[in-house]
Design a protein around this nucleic acid. Sequence first.
DNA 1: CGAACTGTTGAGGTGGTTCAATTCACGTGG
DNA 2: CCACGTGAATTGAACCACCTCAACAGTTCG
Lengths: 262, 262
Amino acid sequence: MSNRTFGAGALRNGTAIKGDAVAVKQQREPDLPCRRCGIGEGRLCRALTRGVSQMSKECQFRQIPCAAAENEIIYSKNTPPGDIFAVCQGWALRFVELADGRRQNLAVLLPGDICVATLFEDELHFSVQAVTKLRITRFARADLTRRILSDAHTLEVYGKACAAQLRDVDERAVDLGRRSAEERVSRLILGIVDRLSGHRVLQNHPYAFPLLQRHIADLTGLTPVHVSRVMSEFRNAGLLRLTKRSLMITNLTGLEQIGRLN
Amino acid sequence: MSNRTFGAGALRNGTAIKGDAVAVKQQREPDLPCRRCGIGEGRLCRALTRGVSQMSKECQFRQIPCAAAENEIIYSKNTPPGDIFAVCQGWALRFVELADGRRQNLAVLLPGDICVATLFEDELHFSVQAVTKLRITRFARADLTRRILSDAHTLEVYGKACAAQLRDVDERAVDLGRRSAEERVSRLILGIVDRLSGHRVLQNHPYAFPLLQRHIADLTGLTPVHVSRVMSEFRNAGLLRLTKRSLMITNLTGLEQIGRLN
DNA sequence: CGAACTGTTGAGGTGGTTCAATTCACGTGG
DNA sequence: CCACGTGAATTGAACCACCTCAACAGTTCG
């Protein structure tokens, strides 16, 4: 496998930032984390942070590494977003919560993801919450727009990232509007593992999977109770095993057939 | 009202193009339709087509006006999209159809709308179908990317358009995942009329509304039968009247309360 | 140990679907 | 002019996918 899967818990190096005060200090450090990051080609945060040395001084990027605890709200809707952030390590959820407590999770954010379509918005309509402990890097919006204008390649990566984000939520809308509970859960799991594995999903291979059933419920528009039933059904059918936040798909084609992915 | 509502059927001027062959011929005409178009400020197609005279020759835009019949498929998924198009007149739907015939409409495209987040995609995951007779204008992708790179304002309008498209489908996903049938239908209608009216919805004012109940059903994830029941309920409650493709909201605050918009 | 949270399982309820029949509007051809 | 066909909308009756409520087990953590 070319892409490493998300490591279970432990941070990869000793430079992890523990809080905002430390993060600001780190901003000046010469060897920024992004330089040593294993994020795949074609991701926006990689395009922004690699090859910087060849560029003129004014195209340099301010990078502010931050950390977040489990369940911490990274961004709260209807507040000025300030910076754009990329997920470096851990899982997060983009979500909307209604006045009466109903909640819809719109997307799972994995390492390398940026909420990018909102670069020019003054207020976002969603919030972002950490699922696991999180490491993120913040970028100044002005840096990003300047870079896009100066570099056709960055514009293309930015445009592709917008398109990918739209495609993802379009798929979610189709699932929510027109697919059964079994299809939704199957497709959600396969979609996440597909991204985790760099599009090479392996059978009988353990993948870190920190989502709780209530997270899955709010992603699929179901109740946690019904998610439990569907997962039990999958488990009893020998399709997958999910224990201790580790997912093993034991019958990949079976799971894909349920999700109409084959 | 600052914005005219979509005129019922008749084309606004005599230069409408009837087919592709004619469209290519029109391409050379000096007075392009976009110059005389009433599309509002802040729309991407307007930013692209106004102020061209001051720009250098290489930033000029090729504009190909086209027409489409009712129900015609404008773009079919998984084919190279070629051009980017803007809706000039009429209504269209962005949708996904599954192998077994289930269909989810993802967005209503009104005059001024462009499927813009897909500028850098080689294959789109959705299709587009005309609801009414349609007039669209096609732009070459290369022209658009060149313009974005050369003009910070166009980049901003482009970015805002991407964000608006994402916000729209996010809202749809929340509706589909977490709202009741009544809420979905109410919000859909109010959202469309809000755009039609330039964000100044009037009570007891007739708006062109060419969507059939099956279109509404595929937008809200319901069946046409249930949409009929919800619409009857709204009608009997004195909230709205919808006859001959013309919608009149007779109790705006009541409809907004059902949709939790107030 | 107890508190809090996650997941499981059962029983009953409901919002929306499915199937089917009927009406209505509209266009078309005789 | 009417007869006819077609597609949209309406309405009723039965059904089912998923929800709600509730009890309970397992795990983690202070």
